[in-house]
Design a protein around this nucleic acid. Sequence first.
DNA 1: CCATTTTCTTGATTTTTGTCAAGTAGCTTG
DNA 2: CAAGCTACTTGACAAAAATCAAGAAAATGG
Lengths: 189, 189
Amino acid sequence: MTDLEQYLHSYFTFDQTDLVKVSALFRRKTLNKGDYFLKAGKQCNQMCFIQSGMLRVYADVDGKEVTQWISTKGYFVADLSSLLFQTPSRWNMQALTNLEIFVIERAEYNRLGEIISKWPETEKLFLAHCFTMMEDRIFSFISMTAEERYQFFFEKNRELFNQVPLQYIASMLGMTPETISRIRRKQLQ
Amino acid sequence: MTDLEQYLHSYFTFDQTDLVKVSALFRRKTLNKGDYFLKAGKQCNQMCFIQSGMLRVYADVDGKEVTQWISTKGYFVADLSSLLFQTPSRWNMQALTNLEIFVIERAEYNRLGEIISKWPETEKLFLAHCFTMMEDRIFSFISMTAEERYQFFFEKNRELFNQVPLQYIASMLGMTPETISRIRRKQLQ
DNA sequence: CCATTTTCTTGATTTTTGTCAAGTAGCTTG
DNA sequence: CAAGCTACTTGACAAAAATCAAGAAAATGG
């Protein structure tokens, strides 16, 4: 079983037949560090599953990069709003490291419902899960201090600790790298 | 046509037959100012459509109320994660004013797919829309100052301006009422 | 392995925002 | 209408976080 199949199995509880049907729609691809999976302004016509490496999602705001999220092994990544509503994407998605992904095209993605009877139910739970992640993040912004938000983030995202340039983490958390650096020092003492 | 039907029609492009089928699953209900639609710790077993009035969604955090959102006329409201995953809700949902709503039970909601063939597609777009709203909000936290966030919020939510106690708006935006008060004064000058 | 670049840390300072407290305005209700 | 609430504003001050600048550490690439 590939990691993609493993993931589909454990997360969506697909059976063997469905697994094979679905994973056949993805093709394997590699990106080099610095390559783009998606550029802002373009339409997002693909979704990918990350097999290994890290992908940074960011926007350009007045010449400054604002990092929205960094996805790692086991994440499905796409600009959902661009993919589903066919609008231009606001996000750049750039490989932070060499990246192995499995890619599915929009057309194939949209055909999943015909191929697998339980897809609508699965997709609903997938989208609800994405929504819940966002809700948790918003809650962290309205109810926590910078320090608490930093803690909360790393408890949920261990794999990013000491793996990602601080400036990106800082931007995701809505603070500066200096602030994180000071939080870290404080916590060592 | 009720407002609910109007909304279903314009937003989801349901035809007349589907409209009737769907809106029959909702029952009309009124809540008095201060009543709860949902209490934290309970499971969310309903979704409602707001016909008139305002509903505040908040959590208790160490004895302090953190307002997550205030929904007005035309919103569908539920704790999606509790409704779909049957987990206890973290949110309280309280009527800020007298409230007219249309309520659908979880069981009925889950049967929509059997009743209307295009429901899975519709639900997908609905969930994606909810997701996008959250994404925009997160972006406002990581890329804007308190003042910009305040502006951004009111441009998108005119109906709440001068209608809702400042403390709730402030909490939603992750700042204090005093800060908003000062932003407002600054903008008059 | 060394030079260069990038990232991280630290300190000094400024800006922003929060906290506390007092006062004002506006509503509600008897 | 007056009393009592509640919500809002304002000021003084404190705390948090941003900014700027310099230096240290780490990673990168010949």
